[in-house]
Design a protein around this nucleic acid. Structure first.
Lengths: 333, 333
DNA sequence: GTTAGCACTCATCTCTTGACAGTGCTATCA
DNA sequence: TGATAGCACTGTCAAGAGATGAGTGCTAAC
């Protein structure tokens, strides 16, 4: 159990280290706490023994450990969030009526600007979306495009080559039937519906129809369930002193470039705020980074997660309330 | 005018420097050329005087100048492209029938893999596209989505809020009229067509129709003309020794992140291969980079540019034929 | 025209040194 | 008994001094 003073010491060390990126010595804390450096040192030694602090070398100041950050986020910080954050910019953003996608894109742009870290929005997984309209539009020659629109306003399309001598009238009829059958069917149930629909008689035509076309439709459907994501402020993280080392930068940028980021956010429990510090991310490239993520859910069933990625030495006090405020707004869309 | 030996010296310096990223001394060339170091040094001095070479400091080996690279690309390299390049991977890519967009995306992924530089595809500007289909699909409540499809298989959509009590039947009629009038009209001519169409009588309804909806359509149309682009292998460039300096990395990554890259590629003359070396790019962040770009044009009128961005010390011998081969393939789509 | 030789110039690496920030420990104080 | 002062110790960092080596320019000779 930590004494009150020890908690204060830990809190100040975290905040000071977040500010300066330099190990924190006992002298600088002594002024703020009103105890002599020697006293602080004793507390520090206890905190280190308990695993909340670390030293970079035997005679350096202290640096918070992952456990230390966690204690800070879970307990110490709770009392005082950073109130200097300018929330009006977020309010402004939501004043303007834009499509959800655009709003989200702008929101994370703003988020990365305000925080100076990297922001990610894991787009609404299409799980909850329902089919609104299926269409086929001839383009040129024997090329056509198929469209699928969901109730959430997402559109997927795919170009296809119609086999020579396709009967366009019949095709139109098929599309019509598909629309009838699949209207308001959840995206995830489409394949099932086609396979086990009671009215097999009616869709027999479809199932025996040109395989390529059916496949194209199915691909369009499955694309909805592939989650999209937006990324903003990748380069922000390069301004952090811990990323002076080019190797680390490479590792991280490589990671951002690939779709592996999905892993990072996807496994986020999903219920409320999640903070993952350093190696908790399970990803080597991210071992010196923290991720703060919050899920949001719009009435219509659209769901997603917004997250901020920064160094473990992140301004949690500022990032967390900002993210929560933003997620709350998104959920009101 | 350069002597033959001087040309050889320049060629070898470029190729050696490209390979090693170290200034090239006279000794190493003497072996390859069969002349003594002193002789080479004389040639080097001449080449430096003529502006083809530079020194990093007074007693260092020589490094090609921008002019030197240019001479190399324009004249010296022509004779021998790198033939070790594995073109079969590109062939394979085009074997698989995918949509144009997907093909292009994969193509530049491949390009960045093969070259180890960053690749960009400036998507077909919609200039040449024509309207194929306009549609409005109700989603939920008074929210609908409008869709515009072009002959090139591109789709743009925009969510709109219908004003209370909108007459859906009338709206459908309007959409029908729009389809009639605008079918096969080039995207760029849509606004004009609506304004000056001979058949003003018929579209009077439309023009006086709810402004918000008209605006939404017009926005969807203009979005086609905004060029899209794909970027791949951003982090590749970080492996180049010239980007050890974190400041440079930041500058470059920042540049990649913003849409400023468009500037880079857009101004590319457009007819055939363009190579821009160093400051020719007019962009400070790119002053140590070269851009090689080739336009492509598909039958249907789809047009675009693919480009490779790397350090000025780029493997032109390898990149240029690769890009050309790829562009030729794309044009055959 | 080509080459050998020599003096010279920088960049780079290593080693040393001193300043400095911070710790741990112990003895002392209230 | 908790807080503090003092002191020895440890590691980092920056600056300076040499030593090393790659490469040049120039001149004289072939």
């Amino acid at each position: 159990m930590l004494t009150n003073r020890q908690k204060n010491v830990l809190k100040l060390i975290v905040e000071e280290f977040v500010r300066t990126a330099e190990p924190v010595g006992s002298r600088s804390l002594s002024k703020a706490l009103g105890f002599s450096p020697a006293t602080i040192r004793n507390d520090m030694a206890d905190l280190e023994e308990a695993g909340y602090l670390e030293k970079t070398h035997s005679s350096s100041g202290r640096v918070p450990s992952e456990k230390g950050y966690h204690y800070y986020v879970d307990t110490l910080m709770k009392e005082g969030f950073d109130t200097d954050v300018d929330l009006t910019l977020i309010d402004d953003l939501f004043e303007r009526k834009m499509s959800h996608e655009e709003t989200i894109e702008r929101a994370i742009d703003l988020l990365s600007q305000l925080t100076n870290y990297t922001s990610i929005a894991l787009g609404s997984s299409g799980e909850n979306a329902r089919v609104r309209k299926i269409e086929l539009v001839p383009l040129y020659g024997d090329t056509s495009i198929i469209l699928v629109v969901t109730n959430l306003g997402h559109v997927e399309s795919k170009n296809i080559q119609l086999p020579q001598g396709t009967d366009m009238e019949e095709l139109k009829r098929i599309i019509q039937i598909l629309n009838d059958i699949l209207y308001d069917v959840p995206i995830t149930k489409v394949a099932e519906k086609l396979r086990y629909d009671v009215d097999q008689e009616r869709i027999k035509d479809i199932l025996t129809y040109n395989q390529q076309i059916i496949d194209a439709f199915l691909e369009a459907f499955t694309r909805f369930t592939q989650s999209k994501f937006y990324l903003s402020g990748q380069s922000n993280i390069l301004y952090q002193p811990e990323f002076k080392d080019p190797d680390r930068v490479r590792e991280l940028m490589n990671f951002f470039e690939k779709n592996e980021i999905l892993q990072l956010v996807e496994h986020g429990g999903g219920n409320g705020l999640t903070v993952r510090i350093g190696r908790e991310n399970q990803i080597t490239a991210m071992k010196d980074c923290s991720v703060v993520m919050v899920p949001y859910e719009v009435d219509a069933g659209e769901r997603g997660t917004i997250a901020v990625v920064g160094p473990t030495r992140m301004e949690y006090r500022k990032v967390i309330p900002l993210l929560q405020y933003l997620a709350a707004h998104l959920s009101k869309l």
